[in-house]
Amino acid sequence: MIAAYAARFADDAVSGLEVGSRPDPEPRDGWSVVDVRAAALNHHDLWSLRGVGLRAEQLPMILGTDAAGVTADGREVVVHGVIGGPGTDEPRSLLSERYDGTLAEQVAVPTWNLVDKPAELSFVEAACLPTAWLTAYRMLFTSGGAAPGHRVLVQGAGGGLATAAILLGAAAGLEVVVTSRSPERRERALSLGAAAAVEPGARVPRADLVLESVGQATWSHSVRSVKPGGTIVVAGATSGDASPAELTRIFFTEITIKGATMGSRDDLVHLLAFLARTGVRPLVDSTYPLTSAHAALGKLAEGEQFGKIVVTP
């Protein structure tokens, strides 16, 4: 089968990628093989190409954590990309960390990881959900406890996580405030349903909940912008780890800080139902054929996309 895989590690990431023939997945008990119809890209793919979370002896490793496709018996499914974890004999990992990922014509996953794709969603739309959208859903509702009328600050606009948070939050009756350096991205955020879009660090009304995925560049603003007793949910640190942690403000104002990494299979089921019933759909920046994976990952590395980049085998 044709696949996009990490062949070597490289600082510029994309030069370590190759697209070519790899062995078909082998059947194993309790696992299913999915014919991939669409797979979405994530920054996890770029980190893998730089050697983060992978060892040289694991190469070549097929990249990708998100996919939607069809099983051998014709079932249309969305792949939950978290393998193993508590309650199983399998160490917790994401697809493309221990097992080959989704940027291929086929992918093998535990059958339990498959969720029925709603007929209302296309394969391209469904493929956008299992990482960025699932993380946004978990940050907002499972970890963040957001409810209609709450104000939510989203640090950064343009990527899959931020656009998902805006669309989900607006549909759920939240007041979503977004930060971005780019005037164009602020305008796009407003068009998606954000109540306000401001420059990073700008003073904003105190938020019940802050979604933080930037880290060092925005952490102090997040801590200053959340209400006393409010919550900050952290799902990444693209600008580096925060320093200092501002512990004095955190304990004095009784701020709760929670971490979120993707979400559970149940979260994915609920997210799919949310989209099917509300009509909310993922924002797709662009689609590429699998054979053009270099160009697709190159665009992701440039950081100029607004929404998800999808690859179709």
Results as ranks from 00 to 15, higher is better:
91 P>V: 09
123 F>C: 12
54 L>C: 05
122 S>A: 05
262 M>G: 01
39 A>H: 09
115 V>A: 14
244 P>S: 06
71 T>S: 08
23 P>S: 09
287 T>Y: 11
60 P>Y: 02
159 G>I: 06
50 R>L: 06
236 G>K: 05
134 L>D: 01
183 P>F: 01
152 V>H: 09
164 A>P: 03
178 V>Y: 02
209 L>K: 00
313 P>S: 12
186 R>Q: 10
271 L>K: 03
185 R>N: 12
260 A>H: 01
232 I>H: 03
219 W>A: 08
91 P>H: 04
76 E>K: 03
80 H>C: 07
102 T>N: 07
73 D>P: 05
203 R>I: 12
157 A>F: 01
187 E>M: 06
6 A>Y: 07
303 G>A: 08
183 P>C: 06
230 G>P: 11
305 Q>S: 12
239 S>N: 10
97 E>G: 10
1 M>L: 08
29 D>C: 15
157 A>W: 04
65 T>L: 05
207 A>C: 12
299 K>D: 07
236 G>F: 08
187 E>A: 13
84 G>C: 08
165 A>Q: 03
303 G>Y: 01
264 S>L: 03
53 G>H: 06
127 A>H: 10
92 R>F: 14
104 A>K: 14
188 R>Q: 15
91 P>M: 07
118 P>E: 10
184 E>T: 10
41 L>S: 11
272 L>F: 00
58 Q>H: 07
120 E>A: 15
201 G>W: 02
84 G>T: 08
164 A>T: 06
160 G>H: 00
136 A>Y: 12
239 S>A: 14
128 C>H: 01
284 V>R: 00
289 P>E: 11
289 P>Q: 11
107 V>D: 01
250 I>Y: 01
279 G>K: 09
86 P>C: 08
48 S>T: 15
140 L>H: 05
110 P>A: 07
31 W>H: 13
40 A>V: 08
286 S>T: 13
114 L>M: 06
110 P>I: 07
184 E>Y: 02
281 R>G: 04
93 S>L: 06
110 P>L: 13
34 V>F: 00
146 A>S: 08
84 G>K: 11
273 A>V: 10
194 A>L: 05
181 R>E: 13
292 S>V: 03
42 N>S: 15
42 N>D: 13
284 V>Q: 00
116 D>I: 07
